[in-house]
Nucleic acid binder design. Sequence first.
DNA 1: ATGGCCTCCTGTATGC
DNA 2: TGCATACAGGAGGCCA
Length: 276
Amino acid sequence: MPELPEVEVILQGLAPYIIGRTIVSTWYSGKKLRHPFAFEQIEKRLTGAAFSGAERRAKNLILQLDNRCFLVCHMGMTGKLGIFTPDSPVHKHDHIIFTLNDRQQVRFNDVRRFGSIQLFKDLNREQLEELAFAQLGVEPFSPECNGDYFFQLAKGRSTPVKSFLMDNRIVVGIGNIYANETLFRAGIHPSRPAGKVLLREWKQLHTELVQTLEWAIECGGSTISDFLNASGQQGYFQANFRVYGRHQQKCPTCSREIEKSVIGGRATFFCRGCQK
DNA sequence: ATGGCCTCCTGTATGC
DNA sequence: TGCATACAGGAGGCCA
């Protein structure tokens, strides 16, 4: 589910509800998540602490507390963070609930449990970056992410350009949906070796990438099966998909049939006519 | 170093 | 209707 736009949408929806609020109590289902949930430590360190900031890094949501602690939330495939009132029924796959001093609750729900919430303590933002995110590539919206950057890193690489785009050591936040959509919009065939993509094509691809991600955020993200924002609403960028999930349908540009293949074990959609 | 495959987990869709 | 199987948005680990 959540790629960069969806995480951004959750962030924007969540932040106004939590900033300045204090954690009163924490509940944990006890079920195993992608990374162990340090329940006892979190209860001990965060009870009484207030949220002082919230930001997105790659597909992580970083929630900053006012006592040199951070909660790093990753949604995995099916994770959701939402705001609930205490009387709304607990869902089957709710795993973590923070109750705040205004009685509202932040609930982490994750059917497949590929997501996680991790505690980082006794450090500042800079140290968190080194500790948790040192291996990550550039943010798509940052100035250092541009056509030249892609071109330089892709030199000599035979990996398909789609896999290259989804490699978070290169650039973060791009999952299967936005890799498919961006490559279509840039006119680049997903299985082309990354090293064979020309500089001008990388520049075009970068432009399309930024525009697609921005547009998706404005649309509230993409809801394929179960993405919901922090208020429980669906996104509608899926209405603007041009290739993702549209195999055997006509290409919106040239009317050829959109094809489906598998690259790096992931469903891949493309138009042979428009993407070279 | 690189690229490809597998796995964690549950729910849903598909085919027999 | 029931059952088996494939597949789904992420990402890290393993192996060649």
